[in-house]
Amino acid sequence: MSERPELNKNLDAETFKEYYWLKEELIDFCRKYGLPVSGGKLDITERIAYYLETGNIMRAKSVSRKSVSVCDITEETKIESDFVCSEKHRAFFKQHIGNSFSFNVAFQKWLKSNAGKTYKDAINAYYTILEEKKNGKTKIDKQFEYNTYIRDFFEDNKGKSLDDAIKCWKFKKQLKGHNKYERSDLDILK
């Protein structure tokens, strides 16, 4: 097994992209070298790769946000293009869906990609998403590599423990290349 390189400004961008990094490691790197730390893991990874490749700092994308009060939201209100999951929105959805409402990832993505549709459409989409979730395997977004790995591990290894899955994950993330589960990862358990 090759050693994972140290994350510093001397690392080349291609090598950086071939390894798994915790978000905390990425943020530490950004703070050390003056890069913005805002955004999700994918945004930060892109920023670091750009810095390692060019030596230049990619600025964070700024997003202007409009405040919407819950009394301004009706079922006919259009979803904002810069939608943010706020307490006002949570209150609206709890009022119309019930106390079991939560901003699950699939629903957040739906809201952010359906600006211009109505909040009534959003309520209907929420129920559809819950139904789809009950009836099948949900898609895990790219930035949640750990979750994807663990799910795939258990699909292939009925009866194995979470400790086994985590040992395999820790082994896999130290390797160069992709972080997808492979049956050969089980060799670390022998």
Rank of each mutant, 00 (worst) to 15 (best):
A60V: 02
D28K: 07
K32W: 01
L7N: 06
K139W: 04
K88E: 10
G39E: 12
K172W: 05
E53R: 07
V105Q: 11
E53K: 03
Q174C: 10
G34Q: 10
D164C: 12
R59T: 07
L52V: 01
L11G: 00
Y19K: 03
Y146L: 15
P36E: 14
N179A: 11
N104G: 09
I27N: 08
E80M: 07
K158W: 03
F92E: 03
N135R: 10
D152M: 04
Y126C: 03
F29L: 12
E182A: 13
K109P: 00
E75F: 00
A165K: 04
I140F: 03
I57P: 03
F83G: 00
E18R: 15
K9M: 00
K66C: 04
E3N: 12
L186Y: 06
Y149F: 15
M1H: 12
Q108R: 13
N56W: 00
C168E: 07
E53Y: 00
K117F: 04
F107E: 09
K173S: 13
I79Q: 06
F153D: 13
G39R: 12
Y33K: 00
K17W: 03
K61H: 03
E87I: 01
F153R: 12
I44Q: 08
E145H: 07
Y126Q: 05
S102K: 15
Y149Q: 13
R31W: 04
K61Y: 02
K180N: 13
A125E: 13
A165T: 03
D12L: 01
N124R: 05
Q143V: 08
D28E: 13
L7C: 10
W169Q: 11
